[in-house]
Nucleic acid binder design. Structure first.
Length: 878
RNA sequence: GGGAGCAUAGCUCAGCUGGUUUAGAGCAUCUGCCUUACAAGCAGAGGGUCCGCGGUUCGAACCCGUGUGCUCCCA
């Protein structure tokens, strides 16, 4: 069969994914094997694959494929999240394009459009994951609004309500005026903006006939003065002590408000006097509670002023901020305007400036839920990788606030609260159940009279159930699959959602299953562009991932993204890493081509049996060593390091050293045993690499020979311990070859110019067994052993052995001398440092004996080497 | 304002229990090679005040303190 010049991934990838699917390798059923379970962080159903998903899912696939090859029953569950805000926004936008306003639709009609949209466009991302090679169990694809899942979410709400963990309360919340919904704290993004600090003076109420006095406050939000309920000053502030207990008048509307002292006020900020607007600021609200101030809500849910504002009714609050200033100035209340930078919250979804607003919302009380979840992580029942995220987690969990779970949206799980016309309400899984609770003898009700809450639950209130609900942990409690797969093994996710999602899943796991949801959490980094900026649509710096897969192949993309991303470190994405991946594919492909060329030339008499044995022993040992190292790195979730050492094993040890050592001369035969061994090693390399680069490894594995099974499910052999003597012999040979090549280069010997090599060594025997390899690698036509220096030659020293390169070419003695002197200087400096250390009595006394012995060996080696160099110098001509 | 983390070669990062040659890798750079697997390649090389300062220790890139700079999270 003719193999193409370079590796071409496209067809290979399509072919093998289809084959794996046809064989059902990815689907899992409970059996006698140990399970290895991963649930995908469900991407938004509206999502398309981006770099973050690519990193995240490559990691999960590596873990899953490796587990599958280690005899575990690997189960990776796919699915999507209904993403209430994002999806509803998309549907509203689609309707707008069709000329339909959401407000003109009933809830049911809107939801029909939403489901239609979801069926048509949702879940594209799941198709895209196939292109990446992800070995997900597609039969288990879940959705957070599947009927069973939906019921479980409702059930959880009812259960938590009945346990007293859910309550309804009027609280200050973050209000998105564009989406007209409450936002959780996590959905608010704070940005620094340039604002103005307005100094406004309020007239102080005084007795008739006395002169008018004023108190000046500073605010960035002059439009909110219409809702002012008090002025607050620090009790120790001398400037205002005389005003404690007096009253002032709100400008323009002349409402009389008290002046109160409280330590909350910062004396040195602004004027030291603070206006208190309980309805529109969280801190003011708390002050209002403390002093029972009137709450004057001056805003509608769309951010316009309402009747209670008295002025500017119907105008947007940002417009009013501009309009009110000239009026204040005209009324003589404006003192001055300063430039001021402050942090302002914006909605993550709509980018609207968030309004703190009082609203009746549903809450989960977090304290009781958080306690076991904190302990689990701090006591390492759940392991975080890297562990540094434990600190962050603890800090958040210890300062946890109640969770606002209601959202003013239709797309999502509808809050199961039902209201009677008189305002009483009941929480129940159905209207019928609610009716039973609300119906009383004095107050008989029909089902038509009770109304369900219009709002939906926060998306995270469904996704926190994900690790068990994908196995129907609540809808079919205690079922066989749950028992087998749960707790899951590893969660792979971004640190950005440690609180949104990871922490809450841990709480839900303990609360609803009595068990942790997973054992290990691997935090990936955030994918950034070359300049370190987050990937975002607005910056246009997100590469087109599918385009990259087409260009470089999925294996190369996986390689490129994995090679430079240790756990928890951000990854600066650079296309050159993908190029490196593509080049690696090509390297593998060419190694395959070389070996396939030999296939036709097996047999015949071959020479240099010893050399082959040496190469075989050495590489086999190398392979065993690296397999052990990979095992250990993978257990520690150090994936990129594992990939690096496999890369180097393939490229350096296998291709650059081993294959060169055993390569027969042009059109020469190859020993049958050697060929067989080499193919075996190549297969093992493919097996080791398969989790990282599944497609090309499967392809090469099958091209290497007739196989009885697929690499995808081939089980790893047990590990073999490293033979350190064999490793050392190989390292020495490599060192000698490199040193001799370096010497050739420095003396401008062309690769084609052959040399005569003389070796001065006490271990002649060990060199004799590798003469042929050495000769081939340094282009030596003869190798001799000598007891003394060889004149007019290039001298190379490796450890205690000396090598003399004899050549017909005229040598440049001054270059050689310079090289030797440089080396001599380095060795002397080194010797000095070691000697100094050894002559320090306290070192010799206190350091561990093996450390001292090592230093002594360093010393004697350095001394021997210095002697060699000095001899060589005196041996130089001229 | 509160908290966490980071600072090592031009770039991206390893360096885990303080001692394994005067610190390693990949990419980039430079030199020489189109050598019958591979120029998407081969063989070599150069490149470092381990952020500054102080301390602990026989010994510090590593531990402690402090300063500076950057990043992230929270308000």
């Amino acid at each position: 069969m003719e193999l193409s010049k370079n590796y071409i991934p496209t067809e290979v990838e399509t072919k093998w994914y289809a084959h794996w699917m046809a064989k059902g390798y990815f689907s899992s059923q409970p059996d006698d094997r140990e399970p290895y379970t991963v649930v995908i962080p469900p991407p938004n159903v509206t999502g398309v694959l981006h770099m973050g998903h690519c990193l995240n899912n490559s990691i999960q696939d590596i873990l899953i494929r490796r587990a599958r090859m280690m005899g575990k029953n690997a189960c990776w569950v796919p699915g999507t999240d209904h993403a209430s805000i994002a999806t509803e926004a998309k549907v509203v936008a689609m309707l707008r394009e069709r000329g339909i306003a959401k407000s003109s639709l009933t809830r049911d009609a809107f939801l029909e459009y939403a489901w239609e949209w979801k069926e048509k466009y949702g879940g594209i991302i799941l198709q895209q994951l196939r292109k990446l090679g992800c070995s997900l169990d597609w039969d288990r694809t879940s959705f957070t609004m599947d009927p069973d899942y939906y019921q479980s979410v409702i059930g959880v709400f009812v259960e938590l309500y009945n346990k007293g963990h859910i309550y309804r309360g009027k609280r200050m919340i973050n209000w998105d005026v564009r989406a007209k919904t409450a936002l959780s704290d996590e959905e608010v993004i704070y940005k620094e903006v340039q604002s103005k600090l307005y100094h406004l003076r309020y007239e102080v109420a005084s007795e008739a006939g006395t002169e008018k006095t004023y108190i000046t406050i500073a605010t960035v939000r002059p439009e909110t003065i219409l809702g002012d309920a008090a002025i607050c000053v620090h009790p120790d502030d001398e400037r205002y002590k005389h005003l404690h207990g007096k009253f002032a008048f709100v400008p323009l509307i002349n409402r009389r408000i008290p002046i109160i002292p409280d330590e909350y006020v910062a004396i040195d900020f602004g004027t030291g006097a603070l206006k208190v607007t309980p309805a529109h600021d969280i801190n003011d609200y708390q002050l209002g509670q403390k002093y029972q101030l009137e709450i004057i809500d001056t805003m509608n849910d769309d951010g316009t002023m309402n009747q209670d504002a008295q002025l500017f009714v119907g105008l947007d609050r940002l417009e009013v901020r501009k309009l009110i200033v000239p009026d204040l100035e005209a009324a003589g209340n404006l003192v001055k305007i300063e430039e001021y930078n402050n942090q302002v919250g914006f909605s993550e979804r709509t980018d609207a400036m968030v309004e703190p607003r009082l609203s009746l919302q549903w809450w989960v009380s977090m304290k009781d839920l958080a306690a076991p979840a904190l302990t689990a992580v701090m006591e390492d029942e759940i392991h975080f990788h890297p562990a540094k995220f434990k600190n962050l987690y603890r800090h958040w969990m210890e300062n946890i606030k109640d969770w606002c779970i209601s959202r003013q949206l239709w797309w999502g799980h509808r809050i199961p609260a039902y209201y009677a016309p008189d305002g009483r309400f009941a929480v129940a899984t159905s209207a019928e159940d609610a009716l039973v609770q609300l119906n009383t003898a004095e107050n008989p009700l029909t089902i038509e009279q009770i109304k369900q809450d219009e709002d939906c639950l926060d998306t995270w209130f469904s996704s926190w159930l994900w690790p068990f609900e994908v196995f129907k942990g609540l809808s079919q409690p205690g079922n066989k699959e749950l028992d087998y797969y749960y707790p899951t093994n590893t969660l792979v996710t971004a640190p950005e959602i440690i609180f949104f999602w990871v922490a809450r899943m841990i709480m839900a796991g303990y609360e609803f299953q009595g068990k942790k949801p997973f054992t290990d959490v691997y935090f990936t980094g955030i994918v950034r562009d070359k300049q370190g900026r987050k990937m975002s649509k607005s910056l246009g710096n997100s590469p087109d991932l599918l385009g990259l897969i087409d260009k470089y192949g999925a294996d190369a993309v996986r390689f490129g993204i994995m090679i430079s991303s240790p756990a928890g470190n951000d990854l600066l994405f650079d296309e050159s890493a993908l190029e490196q991946g593509r080049n690696f594919n090509n390297k593998l492909w060419n190694a395959l081509k070389l070996i396939k060329m030999w296939e036709a030339r097996i047999g015949g008499q071959t020479e240099a049996h010893d050399q082959q044995e040496f190469a075989i022993n050495w590489f086999e040992n190398r392979l065993n060593t690296v397999r052990t190292e990979v095992e250990s790195l993978m257990e520690q979730f150090r994936l990129s390091e594992a990939l690096k050492i496999v890369y180097s094993l393939v490229w350096d040890d296998f291709c650059s050293w081993y294959l060169e050592w055993i390569k027969p001369g042009f059109e020469q035969p190859i020993d049958a045993k050697l060929y067989e061994k080499t193919v075996g090693y190549f297969e093992e390399l493919m097996q080791l690499l398969h989790p990282f680069m599944p497609f090309i490894t499967e392809e090469i594995y099958h091209l290497l020979g007739e196989q009885s099974e697929d690499l995808c499910v081939k089980q790893n052999k047990s590990l073999v311990k490293e033979n350190t003597a064999v490793s050392a012999a190989g390292e020495l040979l490599k060192q000698v070859i490199s040193a001799l090549r370096d010497a050739r280069n420095k003396n401008q010997l062309k690769p084609k110019e052959s040399i005569d090599l003389h070796i001065q060594t006490a271990n002649q025997y060990s060199y004799q067994s590798i003469e042929a390899i050495l000769a081939k690698q340094v282009n030596a036509k003869t190798i001799h052993y000598t007891q003394e220096s060889v004149g007019n030659s290039i001298v190379v020293a490796v450890e205690k052995d000396k090598f003399f390169i004899e050549t017909e070419k005229q040598l440049d003695a001054s270059t050689l001398r310079a090289e030797l002197l440089k080396d001599l200087e380095h060795q002397r400096g080194f010797l000095e440092a070691v000697t100094k250390k050894l002559s320090n009595e306290r070192f010799v006394q206190n350091a561990k004996p093996e450390i001292v012995a090592l230093e002594q060996k360093k010393q004697s080696d350095a001394m021997a080497r210095i002697k060699t160099i000095e001899e060589s110098l005196s041996n130089l001509p001229g």
